[in-house]
Write a protein that binds this DNA or RNA. Structure first.
Lengths: 234, 234
DNA sequence: TGGGTCATTATGTCTAGACATAATATGAGG
DNA sequence: CCTCATATTATGTCTAGACATAATGACCCA
C-alpha cells in the first residue's frame, strides 16, 4: 500500500488522453490490458479500471470484455447544449423580463384530465423577445392551476416545482406569420428560431412549450469538451 | 464478503433515483451519509460512493465534503444534442449525397500558416440540402491539402482523420440572401437554420464551418434523459 | 463580542484480493 | 471443412480497510 502519486487515476487518465489527442494512439488502437497498465503506473488494477471508465464516459475509449480496451472511433459529433429557462437566461444578461399572459384556458384532454394552456410574450429591455405557447398537464402538476403566472413565468415556476424530467427539444428555423411578426415587432416572414420542448416526468407528459425567437436577437450556443466530459454551456 | 444482490450499486442508484423522481426527496434534501446507506443496503461504503458518483454525473445529486450529499436543485435545463456529420446524417436517412466543391483557395492567416477554404453544397435526393463554407487550418491538418474532397465531403474526411476535438456550436435562424436562396432552390429571404461550428484540437483551431439549411427541411433534435445520464440523439 | 485555532466529520481516493461475466479462441467431433 | 462445446482471458463489479482532504463547528483567547 504505497501511495505512488497524489492522483494516480487522474495521471493515468491524462496520460492516455494525451496519447489519443497527440495521435500516438489512433482510433481503433488497442490499449494495453489493465494488468499491464497497473504494473506500468504502479497502482492497483481497480484504479486503472476507474481511469478507463472515465475515459469511456468521455467517449474517448471503448471497452469490450475479453477483447480489451480500444481508442474510440471519432463518434457522432455530440455536444452538451444548455437550454436554460428563458426567464433565467434574460435575468442572467442583466436585463429585465415581463410575462404577459394572454390567455389561460382549460380543456379536457384524451384521458379526461385538465390541460392548462398559456400563451404569452417574454420581454427583455422592454422589447419583445420571445413568444411562448405552453400547455401544462394538470394531472402531473396540479399546483399549476393555482400558480400566479403574472408574477413568475411558467418556465421558471415549473423549474422550481417539478423534481425532475426528461425532455425532447426540436430546433427549427421558421418564417414568422403576420401575427407573430407583429408581436415580435419585426417584419412578416422574418426568420425566427423556434424551440419546441416536450417534458416528461417518468413517462408521463408534463408540459409542452413552443418558443419563438427573433432570429436576429437569439443564438443557441453549445460547447463541447471532448475527452473530459466537462460540461459547459451558454 | 457476502454478495448481497447481483448489482448493489445499480440497486442503490435506482432506489435513490426513484425517491428523487417521486418527490419523496425534494431538491436540497440531505441524503443519509454513506456509512448509513452502506449499512442499509448491506454493502461496502465504496459501493455507495460509486452509486452516488454516478448520480452526481447524472446531475441528480451534489456532494460536499463534510457537509454531505444532497438532492441537486433543478439545474439549468441541459440537453445532449447530437450534431452529426452532415454527410453521415444524410446517408443514414437512406438518401444519397453529393459534394460539389465550388472553390478551393489558400490564404495566409495571421500566423503565416496556410488556411484551406472550401465552399460547397450538400445534396439529398438530388435536391440541394445545405450550403457549407469551411476553412481548415493546414498547420493542424496538413493531410487536408492532399485530400480529394470531390469523393468525400470535408466533414466526413475530417471526422475520420482528426483524433479528437473540442467544439463550439452556434445555432441561429437567418434569412437567406438572394444567392443562398438560389443555391438552396428556395425563395429569397426564406428562413434558414444556420449552424456554425468551431473545432479545436487541444487549444489550436482546426476547422470552422458554417452550414445553412432550409428551415422547412431540417430540424435539430435533442433528447435528454435526466437522472440517468443516458445519451440519445437525433 | 469577535476572531483565530483545532478537532471532528463526511466525502474522496486508493489498495489488494476475490468472484462474475461475456466474448474470443481452441479443440473435438461430425 | 464446418459446427458446437469448452477453456481462456480481459473486463466488470464488489469488499474491507486505510489514509487524504476539506469544511464545519466548537472551543479558547483577546
Amino acid at each position: 500500500m504505497t501511495r505512488a502519486a497524489p492522483n494516480p487515476a487522474r495521471r493515468i487518465r491524462e496520460d492516455i488522453e494525451g496519447r489519443i489527442h497527440s495521435g500516438e494512439w489512433k482510433p481503433g488502437t488497442r490499449i494495453p490490458i489493465e494488468q499491464e497498465l497497473a504494473a506500468r503506473y504502479g497502482c492497483a488494477r481497480a484504479t486503472v479500471s476507474k481511469a478507463l471508465a472515465e475515459l469511456v464516459a468521455a467517449g474517448l475509449v471503448e471497452r469490450r470484455r475479453k477483447a480489451g480496451s480500444f481508442v474510440a472511433h471519432p463518434p457522432v459529433h455530440s455536444a452538451v447544449m444548455t437550454v436554460p429557462d428563458l426567464a433565467e437566461l434574460i435575468a442572467a444578461r442583466g436585463e429585465s423580463y415581463r410575462w404577459e399572459a394572454r390567455a389561460i384556458l382549460r380543456r379536457k384532454n384524451a384521458g379526461g384530465a385538465d390541460t392548462l394552456q398559456i400563451d404569452g410574450i417574454h420581454f427583455a429591455a422592454d422589447e419583445p423577445f420571445a413568444l411562448e405557447n405552453r400547455t401544462i398537464e394538470l394531472a402531473e402538476v396540479p399546483a399549476a392551476a393555482e400558480a400566479n403566472f403574472a408574477a413568475e413565468a411558467p418556465g421558471t415556476w415549473l423549474l422550481a416545482h417539478i423534481p425532475w424530467t426528461s425532455a425532447r427539444h426540436v430546433v427549427r428555423a421558421v418564417a414568422a406569420t403576420r401575427a407573430e411578426a407583429a408581436a415580435l415587432a419585426t417584419g412578416s416572414g422574418a426568420a425566427c428560431l423556434q424551440l419546441e420542448r416536450d417534458t416528461w416526468r417518468g413517462d408521463r407528459p408534463v408540459t409542452h412549450v413552443r418558443q419563438l425567437f427573433r432570429g436576429d436577437r437569439f443564438d443557441l450556443v453549445a460547447e463541447f469538451q471532448a475527452g473530459t466530459g466537462k460540461r459547459e454551456g451558454n
